[in-house]
Design a binder for these strands. Structure first.
Length: 389
DNA sequence: AGTACCGGGTTCTGCCATAAGG
DNA sequence: CCTTATGGCAGAACCCGGTACT
């Protein structure tokens, strides 16, 4: 079926999907935050590097450079990333440093943050307070936020639009995403919150429209399931997600129920694979199975039951399959119990050796023994050694 | 007791291109 | 022209264990 056509058919439905209908007032988001007053002095914010003699346009602000040096900033890195910031004559590096320090960031962390995302020093005191406060709606303490900033300064500082951030939080909440999932989202994919509301909304609407086009009843739940199972989906482009969904529908000839289950189940994770990787991995798997005279339905079942298989590079996957085949495992058992593919070649090899040495009968006992945790496998092996097979 | 099913944890940023705004 | 804001991209597994079922 032509996916584009389906998408175009459901345009009318999109109007009925009012994802913002339950937006709450901003008072609810700001609950627990100290009230921020817009009138708090701008002069204070700009006081740190107010140079008496403005540098000539196009050259760097030397007193700013000196301040940054004192803070331990890697000027070479900063210059390479955002050269314009070093030419500004009104910045807030001391305010930022003090602010982060009060939140528990070490001198090294602060220096690293500024080095990697210099524009951070252009944010005002009140802006920082407000943004931090919005993040604190989602986290229990400051330490967690500092850790994220240290990991990815850009995620926090790239956007100066606090209102947009607030709208994003309200939007995601309105989708029924639970606080714990929201916190997971902000921890692992902080960029989601710096996306424009429109961008996030577009992705959500895409997901919902996919559900509707597949005849699903609960388009909101569908989108929510995908987002909570694949927290990175909102930092992907709709182009990529659309291409991947389209490709899987066609390549596996999925019917509507199969597709609905796949995408909001384990398949959610493979939607954010780059489109080329998905195609390459799929084609490689297809060829491999064909060369082993598998049926088309085997391929489909394998992907439906264990879509992570498409995440694995051709090289690794072929190595695993070869290892299993060499160890006396039939491919059809793998198709039935694909979870064995979770394990590394080294682990599989070792387990096959251990079991074959004991004369383990896979035909009779199945291969589930291969995908146990290490602890359970060893216990199992001990028992087999005592009792024989 | 052993197994099947299922979901969880880990950490996913840093760079580039382009639009927007001045 | 400049800087800032925003969107987009590449890269690609392995393991653990709770709990319900038998």
């Amino acid at each position: 079926m032509a996916f584009q056509k389906i998408l175009s058919l459901l345009k009318p439905h999109l109007n009925t999907i009012n994802t913002l209908s339950s937006l709450k007032t901003s008072a609810q988001v700001n609950k627990g935050c100290p009230q921020i007053h817009a009138s708090v002095g701008l002069h204070r914010f700009y006081s740190t590097t107010q140079t008496s003699t403005a540098p000539p346009a196009g050259s760097e602000n030397h007193s700013l450079l000196e301040n940054l040096r004192v803070l331990g900033v890697d000027l070479k890195m900063a210059r390479q990333r955002q050269p314009g910031v070093l030419r500004k004559n009104q910045t807030n590096e001391h305010g930022l440093a003090e602010f982060l320090s009060q939140k528990g960031a070490s001198r090294e962390v602060i220096a690293s943050i500024i080095s990697r995302f210099p524009r951070a020093i252009t944010r005002s005191e009140e802006h920082l307070e407000e943004r931090w406060c919005l993040w604190r709606n989602i986290f229990q303490n400051d330490t967690e936020i500092v850790k994220i900033l240290d990991r990815s300064p850009e995620s926090f500082f790239r956007s100066s639009d606090n209102e947009n951030l607030e709208k994003n939080i309200l939007f995601l909440t309105s989708l029924g995403i639970l606080p714990q999932d929201l916190s997971k989202l902000l921890t692992k994919a902080p960029r989601v919150f710096s996306n424009s509301l429109e961008l996030n909304r577009t992705m959500v609407e895409l997901l919902q429209s996919v559900c509707v086009s597949l005849g699903g009843q609960d388009h909101e739940g569908f989108a929510r399931n995908i987002i909570t199972r694949n927290i990175y989906v909102l930092i992907r482009s709709t182009k990529r997600v659309t291409a991947n969904i389209h490709f899987l529908l066609e390549a596996l000839r999925l019917n509507k129920d199969e597709a609905l289950n796949l995408f909001q189940g384990h398949g959610a994770q493979i939607l954010d694979l780059s489109h080329n990787s998905l195609q390459r991995n799929f084609k490689s798997l297809q060829n491999k199975l064909k060369s082993l005279s598998c049926r088309r339905s085997d391929l489909k079942n394998l992907v439906l039951n264990y879509s992570q298989v498409l995440f694995v590079s051709p090289e690794t996957l072929n190595a695993k399959l070869d290892c299993l085949l060499q160890g006396g495992i039939h491919l059809k058992w793998v198709v039935e119990k694909p979870k064995v593919l979770d394990f590394s070649v080294i682990t599989l090899k070792q387990r096959l050796e251990d079991l074959n040495a004991l004369g383990y009968d896979f035909e009779k006992n199945g291969i589930a023994v291969l995908d146990m945790s290490k602890k359970r496998f060893e216990a199992k092996l001990d028992k087999l050694q005592v009792s024989g097979c």
